[in-house]
């Protein structure tokens, strides 16, 4: 699946916010590779910085926030790209979909306008061509009676249809990378599967890559090719979806995997992670997971472990990854 050169190469991505309580680092020195045609899962608890990471890739960060590092996309660094060039990338080359279509769609514009403005911004199509393309897109994402529904407003759509509409809008200009921020969390379970399958189908059809942010390991297992696990603003482990479930090397990943009941296996104890994630304003010294970690030693409390390759496609940021791996997933 993965080719040698990544299409998106993220190095040292750091996003900070100046607040009254001082500087808060929401994304801390993140390295990520996204390869052509793959679905990369970005996993973590809420507050782990995965959504901010996703938004930082295209600098979709609100005022007091500051993004540094490099995001290499087709020979350009998106972090310091001038605004006009960044606008061509946003929507045209890299598109994004959000968790809650009810709030992400503009409530007072018909869906037609919301697709059309994307086509106008990134294509040279005339009105008739755009119209044809819009009907096509509605068809692709599975919205029936496209001509009528284009004129309708978000509140006239059902939850699942709204998410389909948002995907149609995002994909209007055939982007090559889709950033999906918990696209199914707000939906019913049955509809979740439909939307995930739609995203997988569209990946084939548009031959695009997908970065999928989720906290749901079930979603990860059924859709992702590779996974990056985030904790407190840092990536702690990246590997294939198989290895993440079979051989986690970071204590946090292990805890995360262990806290999900898995069908088909023997009845085993569910592991749970003691304590709560640290607040971004009060990060522990050293490895940010150390206060909750059963493998932690003095070293973990004093210095920060960096991501290192333990296998060609498996990186982990843990001083005791061997011990974690030996401990296995289910006792």
């Amino acid at each position: 699946m993965a080719e040698t050169a990544p299409v998106l190469k993220v190095r040292g991505l750091t996003t900070t916010f100046e607040t009254a309580q001082g500087r808060v680092t929401a994304v801390d020195n993140v390295d990520l590779d996204v390869f052509s045609g793959e679905v990369l899962g970005l996993v973590g608890e809420s507050g782990s910085g995965k959504s901010v990471t996703l938004r930082s890739l295209i600098r979709l960060i609100h005022a007091p926030g500051r993004v540094t590092g490099t995001v290499e996309w087709e020979g350009r660094n998106l972090v310091d790209l001038p605004d006009p060039a960044l606008r061509r990338v946003r929507g045209g080359e890299i598109a994004m979909i959000f968790q809650e279509p009810m709030t992400a769609l503009n409530p007072i514009l018909p869906i037609r306008v919301q697709i059309d403005e994307n086509l106008r911004a990134h294509t040279t199509m005339d009105a008739a061509q755009r119209r044809k393309r819009m009907l096509e897109l509605m068809d692709i994402v599975g919205i029936p009676a496209a001509a009528r529904r284009l004129e309708e407003y978000p509140h006239q759509y059902s939850g699942g249809m709204r998410q389909r509409a948002m995907i149609a809008i995002a994909l209007a200009s055939s982007p090559r990378l889709l950033l999906a921020d918990e696209p199914t969390t707000a939906l019913d379970v049955t509809i979740q599967d439909q939307i995930l399958n739609l995203i997988l189908d569209l990946r084939e059809e548009f031959s695009m890559s997908v970065v999928l942010v989720t906290h749901d390991l079930g979603v990860v297992a059924s859709t992702c090719d590779r996974v990056a696990v985030m904790y407190a603003g840092r990536i702690v482990e990246t590997t294939s979806v198989h290895d993440i479930f079979a051989r986690p090397h970071h204590a946090y990943t292990r805890g995360l995997i262990g806290s999900v009941p898995r069908g088909g296996s023997e009845r085993t104890m569910l592991m749970s992670i003691e304590g709560t994630p640290p607040s971004l304003a009060h990060m522990p010294r050293g490895c940010s997971f150390n206060p909750r970690c059963t493998f932690a030693t003095d070293k973990c409390a004093s210095s920060v472990p960096h991501l290192e390759h333990i296998e060609p496609e498996h990186t982990v940021a843990c001083f005791h990854h061997e011990a974690v791996a030996r401990a296995g997933v289910s006792q």
């Binding site: 938004r55 295209i58 979709l60 605004d83 960044l86 606008r87 061509r88 990338v89 946003r90 929507g91 045209g92 598109a95 994004m96 959000f98 809650e100 709030t103 992400a104 769609l105 503009n106 409530p107 514009l109 306008v113 403005e117 994307n118 911004a121 990134h122 948002m166 809008i169 995002a170 950033l179």
Partner: peptide, 21 residues
Amino acid sequence: AEYVDFARSKGLRGYVILVRH
């Protein structure tokens, strides 16, 4: 609002976002 972020993620011009959204 998130729909303003969504509009920005579509690469629209600044004044389009400000006026329309």
